[in-house]
Structures are given as C-alpha cells and as structure tokens.
Design a protein around this nucleic acid. Sequence first.
DNA 1: ACGCATTTGCTACAAAATGCAACATTTCGG
DNA 2: CCGAAATGTTGCATTTTGTAGCAAATGCGT
Lengths: 260, 260
Amino acid sequence: MWQEERHQKIRAMLASFGQVSIDRIVESFGVSRQTVRRDLIEMEQSGILRRVRGGAVPVETEDMEFSVRITQRLQEKRAICVAALQLLKSQQTIFMDAGSTTTIMAEVLAGPTGLTDLTVITNSLEVAMRLAQNTPENGVRVQLLRGPVRRDPLETWGGATVADIYSYHADIALLSPLGVDAALGATYHHLYGAEIAEAMARQSTKTAILADHAKIGVTSRKCVCPTAEIDCLVVDAKARARSGFPALENAVARLIVAEN
Amino acid sequence: MWQEERHQKIRAMLASFGQVSIDRIVESFGVSRQTVRRDLIEMEQSGILRRVRGGAVPVETEDMEFSVRITQRLQEKRAICVAALQLLKSQQTIFMDAGSTTTIMAEVLAGPTGLTDLTVITNSLEVAMRLAQNTPENGVRVQLLRGPVRRDPLETWGGATVADIYSYHADIALLSPLGVDAALGATYHHLYGAEIAEAMARQSTKTAILADHAKIGVTSRKCVCPTAEIDCLVVDAKARARSGFPALENAVARLIVAEN
DNA sequence: ACGCATTTGCTACAAAATGCAACATTTCGG
DNA sequence: CCGAAATGTTGCATTTTGTAGCAAATGCGT
C-alpha cells in the first residue's frame, strides 16, 4: 500500500461520501493514524482537500456561491482584514475589488477603526452596501463604479467599469485574488474580476494583496499583478505551513502575517 | 459528527425553518446541549446567525428602516408592478430609480414575465441585486450607475450619477416618487433621489410613475416631473378612494389601476 | 405583584479524541 | 551493507465534548 494508492483512494472516498474520517481510513487501509495524518497534510498542501478535525472534506471550489464562500475561513479572513488596517491612513483613497475577503474588509472598515475620512472606490455591491453611510461627513465614503452587474460576487464589470477606474487614482488597492504564487503573482479565474483588479493596481500608488492560507501558492488562469509589483501581502498565520510560502515571503516587498 | 458538519446542518435548518431550537438540534444530532450551545456561540461570532433564548435565528441582513418600509402595502405594490409590466416590451431599455416600489418591480422582473432581452439602468443597488444575472445572454441586463453610495434606500447619487444618466437614453423610466399630485406632479423629499429621477425622466421616451394609494395627492419638497409629462400613472385599486384621485385621473395621459 | 417551578445560559472541570513532534523501525534501491 | 524515504510508536499538548452545579430568565398560578 503506497502513498500514491492511498491518496487515490482517499480522493475516491472523498468524492463519494463528501467527507472521510481518519479512523475510517486507518481501518480500511490498515496503516497507522500518523501515516494517514501525513497523507492528509500532503494532500491539503496540494490543494486536493481540506483537513478538519477528525478527517477531511473536499476543498471549496471557486464556482461555489458567494454566500457560501464568504463564510469559509472566516476567522482567518477577519484576522487578515484587521491586520490590513495598518496599511491604511486617514484621508486616503482606497480601491477595493469584489471578493469574499474584501467584503469582510468592508465590514471591518464599517466598524471602529480609528481611521477617518476614507474614500473607498469599488466595483463590489457587497462592499458598497456594507460601507454606505447616511452621514457622509465622518467615516467612510463609498464610490461605486458603473457598469453591468453580475452575480457571484455581486459586482460591476466590463469596459465601462475599467474605464471608470482609470478616471481615479488611489493611494492603495486592496485586492483579493483567487491565488497568489511567487512566480505568477496574483491570479484570477474570471476575466471579469481580473481586468478590474489589473486596472486598480495600475491606478493606485500601492497594491496590497489579501490572501488567506488556502490561496498561497495557488495559480489560476489570468495573471493580474506580478510579484514584483505587490507592495504588501497580507496572509493569516496558517499560511506559513503552505509549501509555496517561503518563495512568496522572499518575493514580495512586504509581508504581514495576521496572527489570529 | 464534526463541528464542520453540524455547523452546515444548523445553517440548513436555519435557512429552511427560519429558526432552530437548541432542543431540536440536540435531538437530531445526538450531542449535548452544551455542545450545541458552543456551536451557536461560534456561529454567532462568525456572523452566521443570531442567538436568542432557546435557539437561534438568521441574522438580519437587510437594513431595518428600509426593510420595514418595503413590506408596507406590499400587496398593493406588487399588484402595481405586475400591472406595470404591460408598459414594457421586449428589447426595451428601462430606467428605474431607487425606492421600495421599484425594488419590488425588480423582483417582478426577475420572475417570469414573458419579456426578453430587457436592459435596466438604475442607481439602486437593491434593484441591481435582484436583477443581476450570471448569464447575460437571456433575461434582464442591469447597468448600474456610478457614484457615491448612500443608504435608505441603497443608491448611488450626485453629479457623477446624473452625468452618467445623461450618457444613456431609455424607452421608459419607471419612477417611484414620494408623492403624486395633480398640480405638482411627481414630488420627492430628498434632493438625491429627485435629481436622479429628473434626469431619468428627461432621458427617456416615456415616463411612468408607480404610486400606491398612500402617495396619491401627496406633495413634497422637490418637483420632478409635472403632470403633463407623466405618460402613465400606475396605482392600486384603493387609490380611487383618495381625495386627490379624480384630479389626477384627468391630468395624466394614461392611467392604469391595478386591481388586486 | 409575588412565590415557585421550569427552562435556559453560563462557568468550571474532567474525560475523551485528536493533533503534533520526536524518535524508532521498516522498507527499498544502490 | 548503507542511506534515504516511508512508516510506526510513543508521549505530550491541544481541542473538543460531556457532566454538573449554579445563576438568570421565563412562565404560571394565585
């Protein structure tokens, strides 16, 4: 019974049952608990599955509904967003794109931050909703970018939106891509979000990437921001365990690890 | 039975029943009361639900003020919106401003209408959300107008938004003012909404006013559209009883009374 | 309004399950 | 046989869960 064989069978079990317990694997393979644990760790780092206490479950897919995605790794994302606050100063203008992490960032910004007079420019309806104020005097102003609206996430997109972005300039862009990799930088799956993020990165003085540990070392179809142009990468503590982390750590100008 | 699994199922129960009692979870999962309590505490901290004595309920996402207003005279408003469908034809472009009635109109349009290939241009995030599609091929396209965002209702407003409107031309504008009066026409309270509505009325071939009976004969601060320029007024059956109704009936070019 | 019983929420602690790291053992190719 | 990789074992830390006791809230009958 080799690793390869076990991995394959674990994947099969995961596919058919939606979950596997360590005990179950131990029983059916006749190997030790520790070995199974090591298998699962490897498979998790390969992005094949996600470990939970007592077993493992399938990794979340990107075509999942936004409402589901936003509840996943919520603790880590919140920690990341709180840590990202130190990148901001009062009276700054901020680009934010549409994603589950930036949505949580909006929630954080809507709370007490010590920052005043921020202007957020976004194509995300979720972000806009959370930051909208009745009193534009204090707190956060939101500027919504125009364009056709699509769902998952709720955002405006397309040429009109991109053109709109180019009419602004921000101090910092907060982006939540699908993956971050040392070689390819920030990557997106959909072209919609990618061209938005690209424009935002260009039209801002600094670019910060918000990525939870599941995104470290992950690559997708569309490269948006090469590693050299990432001014700051904000990750959660679990990112240290990811295989792609050391390379990223050296590649980016600044790294913030949010300790939960 | 892992946390993970329980949390998921609790969410499912919450979604389908609108509430869950601790006892019910205890029974169906076979875990202790304390464990359920701890689950709910975690989920509450994650913002997934709100704990109440004896169980939990879904967290209220909607803004209180607006969600209250939107449920008032819901029956009548829905009837008005269904009646307003006869004003629309396939392949038309439609302006919609931000209000409780247009939000319901969006819900109606999101359902089966027999109309295809509509384009809706709006400054209302509520309308945009309800009409957003993943597949822009069929159904309704939504174009969101840019600008700063405010709440109650959630909308973009201001010079940028108005300028954006003037870059479009629609077949019909569906407006939901605060009041309609024979002498003053459609009137708004806030200047925000008023200048939006005014621009929409100008940039569209026809202008339709959606008003429930509570708005008949009511006037407010800002006149937007004189009676002569109202191409169609859509009201509910109870409007006939209002004192301002006969005058309006004569003043507008066309009147549609939605019989519940 | 009052007292009383019941339900529910909370804290503390113990037991069990699980995760983790260090080290020992086995396996396998050269 | 040697060395490296894989696997097993052990011991301990951490997390999760259950139990019990008590406080607070609720409901109920008077």
